[in-house]
Design a protein around this nucleic acid. Structure first.
Lengths: 200, 200
DNA sequence: GCTCATAACCGAGCGTACTCAGAAACTATT
DNA sequence: AATAGTTTCTGAGTACGCTCGGTTATGAGC
């Protein structure tokens, strides 16, 4: 360990490499075939690791999906936050925050719905679930800020409104009858409901 | 088939008998141990039928849960509708409709959450899922009626408000962070959110 | 009653997510 | 560089939901 430029041992580097391979394999297979049509065996094989090894990096298949997709939602949220500034009123500002998330979710409907299912019903003790939850929390905080800026609901009311918006988003993207809708149609569905609360 | 008093053949009677035994077995085992801790084998054994036979009556384990629980929710809804009449304002009326449903759902938290998961993510082509969906639709219709009676959101707005209420109910009962809450606490959570829309 | 077509039933078997006991790889120490 | 201790890896094995080909029960026609 003479070199300060190499603080990481081979062990750490190997681990990182495997994680990268797993992420790449899962990302590609999920995108191409959908999470339900891909087996954990296939992912392990493509990542060139043993089947047991896969579960050292993500304890369940659901965690694997969260692991692979969280970053995209984080990026989407960042975009939404930026877009919200230019909106003419609360309703449009909230929708500006929501739009990239919905678009991200609808890139592949089944994966999107599975992602939501995993957030709502998955094991809250798993690390990637925690990461997903903090994205949800951050989303609500951003929406609460937007609502606060409007002033209509006061300091205390803003988080409640944000929570309500969360409910509407999750439900609209999850329910079976909305499965055929594309991002734009989902957004229209959400707008109609939020207009009741945030009439401009 | 000389007797008009026995229009059903042995075949139909046997089927009905088996269905009854399955329902009884599943009801008891789910209630006692929770849906996740019960195997389909156990249910089949307790109902005294082959494992394959079980799946002639409910195509998936999830369907089995819906089959067993739908009736309770239907009854809860009926109670709620009756209670709504006596409420002093819209918010209280909506909560009167919602209360029995939440109480029904929280009798056993894990089963309740699984029931919701099955409604939102289950196969919409299955018969018991369809039945569950029609309970949801009916709930929204009742809430829409209550909202219409208030007049605040007009004829067109009422179904949208009802849908929004659905979102809030489902989300509040489903999310992991609310898992420790009892029926009364869930209702309080729902009330806080609905108050934003239905302020008295 | 006998025959046959059909509906209902059964349980061995399959696919797949996940586990676990032992093997292998790595690091620290001398 | 040999040893020991620890972490990481592995794939055969397990559990469980569900399927499917073969079997049995039922009832209609004669």
């Amino acid at each position: 360990m003479a070199l300060a430029s190499r603080p990481l041992g081979r062990r750490e580097r190997n681990k990182q490499e495997k994680l990268d391979r797993i992420t790449a394999a899962a990302t590609e297979l999920f995108a191409e075939h959908g999470v339900d049509e891909v087996t954990t065996q296939q992912i392990a094989e493509k990542a060139d690791i043993g089947t047991g090894t896969l579960f050292l990096y993500a304890r369940t298949k659901g965690e694997l999906l969260l692991m692979v997709q969280n970053a995209r939602y984080e990026a989407a949220l960042k975009r939404g936050r930026a877009d919200a500034a230019a909106a003419p009123n609360v309703l449009e500002a909230v929708l500006a925050v929501v739009r990239p998330i919905v678009e991200c979710n609808r890139m592949q409907v089944e994966n999107g719905r599975t992602y939501l299912r995993e957030i709502v019903f998955g094991d809250p003790d798993e690390p990637h679930h925690g990461e997903a939850m903090s994205i949800v929390v951050e989303t609500e905080e951003i929406i609460a800020d937007v609502v606060r800026r409007d002033g209509r609901f006061g300091e205390r009311g803003a988080p409640t409104v944000a929570r309500l918006v969360s409910s509407v988003i999750f439900f609209s993207m999850s329910i079976n009858v909305n499965a055929p809708l594309n991002a734009e149609e989902i957004l229209e569905d959400i707008r109609r409901q939020l207009a009741v609360v945030l009439h401009p």
